[in-house]
Design a binder for these strands. Structure first.
Length: 429
DNA sequence: TCTGGGGTCCTTAGTCCA
DNA sequence: TCTGTGGACTAAGGACCC
């Protein structure tokens, strides 16, 4: 069941926390291998086509940051320790951290494996002020996991998230500088805190939006706040324009939402070399579609729409989708839809990345029963397949059509690739 | 120079239908 | 019967986040 539980919108009380683990994946790896402490550690990007998933602060001193192409990271710091990601392990650690947070309040909204919002206005009345709770949370996570985190405290979610940046360790000219760990934006000081920041600090302002804003003469959040909302809407569209206008003026009435239902589930993979033949790609589509359907069943969800994503060698990316007459979690149907979509695309220029996704999700219990399709035998077979995988691992069994002559059933395209559909415990949210 | 993987949300355009 | 309109839905792509 994924019934949503929502906190109240902000009421001006400084009662929202944003908890962010410091260099999470890298820190988890260092904890596993203490001999790495103090060294530049980079997680992800072990292949030639990868990017950095996380970098320790010692690696950041060399200019390495997440999302940087691994080739470049290796050039910047050849002696750094490059490690493949171990997503299932990070997921376990994250689960324990989240459970520590829910000991403080049930109103916890995980944003990713290493970040969460908390609404502690109720808890603060019983257990201490929000900033005292922030300090206690840091101490408890350090005790239990030997990992550090930074916490922002404010009267709204987005202000708390900005505050976290002030709490974090920094890289200075002489190396890593420890941060304060907790930063509080006191009530009434929000705009003083907010307005000097660059517009790119705001959630939703990336390279494209900041370029457009710069053309309007907007550099800081304060510049943005002084613009009429209508001008922003004209420049950026209705949703983005009015949202940014509100954020720039410190207005954010989004509550903390617990147990958000996922909107889509997908798997995609960049191949170590471009694939040019339909048969190789059909096998990959089968494998990815099978993995997506497996996750649908594991989450008790069915999907109405199947999406195929293709990135060509020149990085041009297209998506093709189909909406099914009835929502499904069947591997047979997901794979068939993906293969049909792929068959209509000319892949001879060479395909760099292939992805299969499912959207338009509804809970299985809410699915209308179909009396016409006679898929019971397939469904039973898929349930048995899931049980075998639960017991013997994700690669122990799979559709025959996913076998590519050169690689067998499992297709570890990058020998270091341990994320993605073949991982033992795909990310759940 | 080289650009992962898993997501969310928004915009635009086309189609269908009342 | 024809035309216009607006909403719902679908498809594709873009921007952004971690």
């Amino acid at each position: 069941m994924t019934a949503e539980l929502k906190g109240r919108p902000p009421d001006g009380t400084v009662g929202f926390l944003h908890v962010d683990m410091d260099a999470f994946y890298a820190a988890v790896e260092v904890r596993r291998r203490p001999e790495l402490r103090g060294k530049p550690v980079v997680v992800g990007g072990t292949g030639n086509r990868g990017v950095v998933a996380a970098a320790s602060y010692e690696a950041r001193v060399f200019g390495i940051h997440s999302a940087m192409p691994s080739v470049r990271a290796r050039r910047l710091c050849p002696h750094a320790v490059f490690l493949p990601g171990d997503h299932s392990h990070y997921g376990e650690v994250s689960g324990r951290v989240m459970s520590t947070l829910t000991d403080v309040t049930p109103l916890v909204e995980p944003l990713s494996l290493d970040e969460a919002f908390l609404d502690v206005r109720g808890a603060a009345r019983l257990l201490g002020t929000a900033s005292e709770l922030a300090g206690r949370i840091r101490g408890r996570i350090l005790d239990q996991e030997q990992l550090t985190c930074s916490v922002g405290v404010a009267s709204t979610k987005f202000m708390a998230k900005l505050a976290t940046e002030r709490a974090k360790p920094r890289v200075g000219p002489s190396g890593v500088v420890r941060g304060p760990g907790v930063h509080v934006v006191e009530a009434g000081t929000e705009l003083d805190f907010l307005h000097p920041l660059p517009v790119t600090a705001l959630f939703g302002v990336g390279p494209a939006t900041s370029r457009r804003l710069r053309r309007l003469g907007v550099e800081t959040v304060g510049d943005l706040a002084s613009m009429p909302e209508a001008s922003l809407v004209a420049a950026l569209g209705t949703a983005a324009g009015s949202q940014l206008h509100r954020l720039a003026n410190g207005i954010d009435d989004r509550p903390v939402v617990v147990d958000r239902m996922p909107r889509s589930i997908s798997h995609e993979e960049t191949f170590p070399r471009d694939l040019h033949t339909a048969s190789e790609l059909q096998a990959e589509a089968t494998r990815l579609g099978d993995a997506v359907s497996r996750r649908l069943r594991a989450s008790s969800l069915v999907a109405r729409t199947i999406v195929l994503k293709v990135r060509f060698g020149d990085f041009k990316t297209i998506t093709r989708s189909v909406t099914l007459p009835d929502p499904t979690d069947s591997a047979r149907e997901v794979v068939a839809a993906a293969r049909d979509l792929l068959a209509a695309i000319d892949v001879t220029p060479g395909v760099r990345l292939l992805g299969v996704g499912a959207s338009g999700l509804v809970e299985t219990s809410a699915q209308q029963l179909s009396f016409t399709d006679g898929t019971e035998t397939h469904d039973a077979a898929e349930q048995v397949t899931d049980q075998i995988r639960d017991r013997f691992g994700a690669s122990s069994i799979g559709p025959a059509a996913a076998i590519r002559g050169d690689r067998g059933l499992r297709s570890p395209l990058d020998p270091d690739q341990r994320w993605g559909p073949d991982a033992e415990d795909p990310q759940s949210g």
